[in-house]
């Protein structure tokens, strides 16, 4: 097992011990506050290093964890009255993307997200969260609808990438992604994008042109998968671990490169450990973001988004 897991296990043990001591101290009416507080200090220090010590590859693994909460998981905890809306009105309904309308803190929103499965059966149905063009066109239709009814758009990003297949090419995968990038730039409602798992290249970005972009702590966002980078760079996809470091794909990297606005903390050991709590962390950020963006009028929202992407890049 990795170092990180050891730290997490150790933390869990300390947490248990603290609970035991507290229980014991109440039951036996003995003052153990000194022991408890020293353990708590130890816990906090260790917790800090745990977050710092996690390697890029470990983040990638957590981002891909089979039990990792999906868009639908967060939708369940974050929104009320969610109604899923289907289809792109052109070709079909792509289940790799889930979308609909709902209430967030009592206000209408449109939510769109990549949807992975947690079982093989579910993953086949969801095409492992890798959309075809009709998925992106469904997303676009829902965003246009949100724009019409003036409700904010919340996007959950979690895909290894847009599906590389024959039919996807025939139906214009490139065009579908490109159009989303352009149209998202022009909407007059707040758009908030959150990478909740994998941020795989253009297939992720097609839901990613937002006023605010956040990443959960154990996610990645990259121009190419670590495996893809490794096989291109060293003709060896097993060097994905090294590529994960070289390519600078973790949330702190992206924050430093100016590609995202912030990092949403994760529950210890990864979001899958406590989904309701993780949803609360996301809720806090959404409330903050929506309050901030609600101060901007329609034109300002477009300008805000434009200026955000306009400064991305580095050159001399």
């Amino acid at each position: 097992m990795t170092k990180e897991t050891n730290v997490i296990e150790e933390l869990e043990q300390i947490e248990l011990k603290i609970a035991e001591l507290k229980k014991f101290s109440i039951e036996q009416n003995i003052d153990l506050s000194d022991d408890i507080s020293s353990l708590q200090t130890k816990f906090k220090t260790l917790q800090k290093t745990a977050h710092e010590r996690i390697t890029p590859w470990e983040r990638v693994k957590l981002a891909r964890h089979i039990e990792r909460p999906t868009s639908l998981d967060y939708i369940r905890y974050l929104f009320n009255d969610f109604i899923e809306l289907h289809g792109d009105r052109l070709y079909g309904d792509d289940e790799a993307i889930v979308s609909g309308i709902a209430l967030f803190q009592g206000k209408p929103i449109t939510v769109i997200g990549h949807q992975k499965g947690k079982t093989t059966k579910e993953n086949l149905q969801r095409n492992f969260g890798m959309p075809h063009p009709e998925g992106y066109r469904k997303a676009l239709r829902l965003m246009q609808q949100a724009n019409k009814f003036n409700r904010p758009i919340i996007c959950f990003i979690n895909t290894a990438g847009a599906y590389p297949g024959k039919e996807a090419e025939e139906r214009g995968q490139s065009e579908a992604i490109a159009r989303n990038l352009r149209e998202m730039a022009g909407f007059t409602v707040p758009i908030i994008c959150i990478v909740i798992g994998e941020g795989g290249s253009g297939g992720a970005l097609a839901l990613g042109v937002g006023n605010h972009i956040f990443m959960l702590e154990n996610t990645y966002y990259s121009v190419i998968s670590p495996e893809g980078a490794a096989s291109l760079l060293w003709k060896d996809s097993s060097k994905a671990q090294t590529a994960a470091e070289t390519m600078k794909i973790t949330p702190p990297d992206l924050l430093e490169l100016g590609a995202i606005d912030g990092i949403i903390p994760e529950v210890l050991g990864g979001a899958q450990k406590n989904i309701p709590l993780q949803a609360e962390y996301i809720r806090n950020q959404l409330v903050k973001s929506l309050t901030e963006l609600s101060k901007l009028d329609k034109e300002e929202l477009i300008d805000h988004r434009y200026n955000k992407f306009r400064v991305m890049g580095s050159f001399i």
Partner: peptide, 26 residues
Amino acid sequence: GARMQEGVLSLMQMAKTSAALEKMSK
């Protein structure tokens, strides 16, 4: 396609250029 050696910054150029085209189209 996107240039791998500039990582996610290359990816973001897709959004940047497309946003400029949206402005132009309007």
